[in-house]
């Protein structure tokens, strides 16, 4: 386990080093010539920013996000079940089917309620 964590951190470190190194080289090579216009927001060429982009935007997939969490949890349950499925046999299948069915019914309910529609 500890070896795996070391491997993971070394990989992350190598990736980070590459990023920092490349950006450093760029810093050395680039010709910096900044003006106010260059640093301003790209708005298809328009100079005036007509509204603030950081507003309370409507997230129409909020409910989808909730569904994602539910199904992600289901998925985490399914993985260990799938690994040992061969040795457990029919009973495990039926148990898991009941579990999936409940979630599927939930999905169907959400579908019928019109939550899955992008209005």
């Amino acid at each position: 386990m500890i070896s795996e964590i070391i491997y993971f951190s070394v990989f992350v470190a190598v990736g980070l080093t590459v990023v920092v190194l490349m950006l450093g080289i760029q810093k050395l090579l680039q010709t910096k010539r900044h003006s106010d216009a260059k640093l301003s927001v790209y708005e298809c060429g328009n100079i005036d920013v007509v509204s603030d982009p950081r507003i309370q935007i409507k997230m129409r997939y909020y409910i989808f996000g909730l569904l994602l969490i539910i199904f992600d949890v289901e998925m985490i349950f399914l993985f260990p079940w799938a690994v040992v499925f061969k040795s457990l046999g029919l009973v495990a299948l039926i148990e898991m089917l009941v579990f999936i069915m409940i979630l599927l019914l939930g999905l169907l309910y959400a579908w019928r309620k019109g939550v899955l529609k992008w209005t």
Partner: peptide, 9 residues
């Protein structure tokens, strides 16, 4: 343009 010093190179 607002001229700034050339690159570090």
């Amino acid at each position: 343009l607002i001229q700034q010093p050339a690159s570090k190179a």
